[in-house]
Each structure stands twice: as C-alpha cells, then as structure tokens.
Design a binder for these strands. Sequence first.
DNA 1: TGGCCATGTCAACACGTGTTGGCCTACAGT
DNA 2: ACTGTAGGCCAACACGTGTTGACATGGCCA
Lengths: 181, 181
Amino acid sequence: MRRTSDDTKAAILAAARERFASDGYQRATIRAIAADAGIDPSMVMRYYGSKDGLFAAAADVDLRFPDLTAVPRHTVGRALITHFLDRWEEDEGMMILLRTGVTDEAVAERMRGIFATQLGSLAARLIADPAQAPVRAGLAATQVLGMALCRYVLRLPPVAGMSREEIVDWLGPTLQRYLTE
Amino acid sequence: MRRTSDDTKAAILAAARERFASDGYQRATIRAIAADAGIDPSMVMRYYGSKDGLFAAAADVDLRFPDLTAVPRHTVGRALITHFLDRWEEDEGMMILLRTGVTDEAVAERMRGIFATQLGSLAARLIADPAQAPVRAGLAATQVLGMALCRYVLRLPPVAGMSREEIVDWLGPTLQRYLTE
DNA sequence: TGGCCATGTCAACACGTGTTGGCCTACAGT
DNA sequence: ACTGTAGGCCAACACGTGTTGACATGGCCA
C-alpha cells in the first residue's frame, strides 16, 4: 500500500487544525486543507464525512487542568496562569475554540460547557461558599481568556511582547484574588 | 420621491451594523442586510460600493474615552470599567470589532491601533515611568476585553448574570492596580 | 499470474455568494 | 402634459464552495 489510511487521516487532521486555528471555520476551506495534506478534497469527505465532522474532530480539546488543591493555596493564581500559558502554546485547539466560538453559537456553547465544568469545579474545591464559586470562576475566565485574546489572537504589541514571567507576576495576584480572597 | 437616498443609506447602515454584530463578516450576507433594510441588494452596492465598503462604514467606531485625569486618582480603575460597560452596551460597533477582529487581520490591525492610541495615551498620562505605560495599558486591555468577550460574546452564564455593580467592584481594583500601582 | 480491495484522482453538480447592467416608475419642474 | 432624473427592482453572471459518484491503480493474497 502507498499509505495506510490512518496516516492520511492524521495528515488531514493536522492540516485541518492548522487551517482552522489560523483562518477560523468559514475561511478554512476543504480544498486548502486537502492541498496541505497532499491529497484530494474528496478524501476528506471519505474519512470525516463532512466539513462539520472534520471540525468536530479538530476542535476536540481539553483544558487538562492539574489538581490545584495539591499546590500551596497562596500560589494558586500563579499556578493557574502558568498552566494556561503552557496549554495555549502547545495546543492549537485553544486557538480554534476561541477563533470560531466568537461567531459560531455551537462552539460557544461548547466553550461554556468546558469552562463551567473545568474551571467551575476547580473553583468549587477552592472556595468555601458554594454560591460564590461560579462567579469566581467566571472572573478568572475573563482575565485568562482576555490575556489569550490580546496575546495570541489580536497580538497587541505590548501584551505579545511580554515575557512569561512578567505575565505571571502581573496576572497571578489578580487570579489569586478572584479565586481565594 | 418615496424616500430620500440618505434615509435609505441610513437604513442599510443600521441593518448592516446589526448583522455584522451578530453574525460576523462572512456570515452576514448582502442579501440578508438588504432584506432587513427592505430594499434590493443592488442598492447596497450603489450606496456603499462593495461589501468591504459597507463594512468599513459599519465598523467606524470610537472608544470615546473620557479624561480620566479629571477623576480622583484612586477611582481610576472603577471609572474605566464603568465607562467600558457603558460603551459596550450602547454601541454595536464594539461587538463588530471583536467578532470580526478575531478572524480578520485588517480589523485586528485596526483594533491594535485603537487600543494603542486611546488606552495607551490614557496610560501615558497616568503613569510616571513612560517605559511602563504601554505594558500597563496592555494589561488593562486584557482584563477589559476579556470581560467583554465572556459577558457579551461568549455569554458565560456566571459572567453574563453579574450586575454592573458586582463587575465594577471586582474589576475596578484589578484595573486600578494595573494602571497606577 | 489473476483478482480484489484499499487508497486515491477526476470531473462535475448544486448552491450561495458578491457584483453588474438594464429596465422600470414615481415624482418635481417647466 | 411632458420630460428628466433620482430611487428602486429584476435577472443574470462569474466564482468559490461543499459534496458526490465514477473511474483508476498499486500492492497483497490465493
């Protein structure tokens, strides 16, 4: 055989993640993805059924939160932002979610689910009053997503130019306050 | 005459702002905008030349920052977030910029310009060390845009459900620290 | 060697898009 | 009443899209 079908599927998925991440859903075309993967557009349909199916496979992403209760309570803020920066820089899925969730309601719903369960449950373990946990988690989300938006998507020069240490030093205390104070 | 051309232009622009704000650039079609305005798609071309021309007219937006040096220095954070919430709720242009800037490089560049000049010059007047001003402004942008993203675009339930007072109470101190401390 | 299936290509369809040019129609000025 | 013109509509074009089905071809197994 020239190539095993799993190899081709993987090549398509890799090309799709890149295109979706940089162009968003609409502007990423099946033809362009197929060209990147070095095969015919019809192969994409064969392996993923439709553009929606391909997107679903490409946007399957997990925040992979560590257990922040294992870390000293007064360093929770710094640990959270550090993990987030890591996650953002190693997984194109983050960019895909943000770029498409802004205009696609279905993806937005998915993001709501991800943040509600993952950040929410984290906050629930950290905060005594269970009624306050969701609001605290939401506040943390605004700061963390805002950073991702400005740094990786919009690329505002001062924010894109900051070092990781600077960011942790500045945002750590903010998140610390939102989550524990 | 049935209608003056200025009326029609205004009707088209209003429909366009609404569509661009809720659907983004690609999914907002000339045909849908024309239907909303109650006229033929070709009229849009007549008055605005092209879809790009129409978008440029619809996305012409100003942050309209007040002079924050007139306000007591220790309330600058609260004043900033208050003004931003106002601005966001009264002007669809904000939503247009955020929804489209995330996928359209030209709009992103425009946002960079807006934030650099407006928030940047504000920070420059507030902060003694001129080398630190851009970073401070950038930090404020992450928190403020992150709030807009979570509350108005993604509609994360805990954030969308917060009252204005709650938001000001929580984000005010954060912005205060970024801008003055 | 011959046949079969997985892997892949090709050309085309149906549809929605931005955009264009020609045509109509109601009103203002004479 | 006649005409010019501003405001508006209609049908069509050219293009790119996702998607489909028919056809080719290389390598494994009998």
